[in-house]
Amino acid sequence: MLLIHCPHCQETLPEAEFTYAGQAHIVRPADPMSQTDEQWEEFLFIRQNAKGAHYERWRHLHGCGRFFNAVRDTVSDRFLTTYVSGAPRPDLSSLMEGKA
């Protein structure tokens, strides 16, 4: 079971308390009416599915109930960092240092 650090609770807790919520930093279109079919396809369905560092959302469902973001290596399942939603995307190169 993964151990996940909730940036709101500031505690590292078992995965069973959390739910996965998909790729992070997908921005909802400001003007939905102007979107083309291609843009909707991209927004709704196309995912990065990265092998390696992956920016993703989690929700501390059985805790504070809040969403947050994480960077996880999808090969080792190791969390590189977690951070609150709305915070800027952390720089990957600094995260990878010392974790390899």
Binding site: M1, L2, E15, A16, Y20, N49, R72, T74, V75, D77
Partner: peptide, 13 residues
């Protein structure tokens, strides 16, 4: 598993 992954393992729960 609930999360995407390329590790050919999966969680014990």
């Amino acid at each position: 598993d609930q999360y995407t992954s390329y590790s050919q393992r999966g969680g014990l729960p």
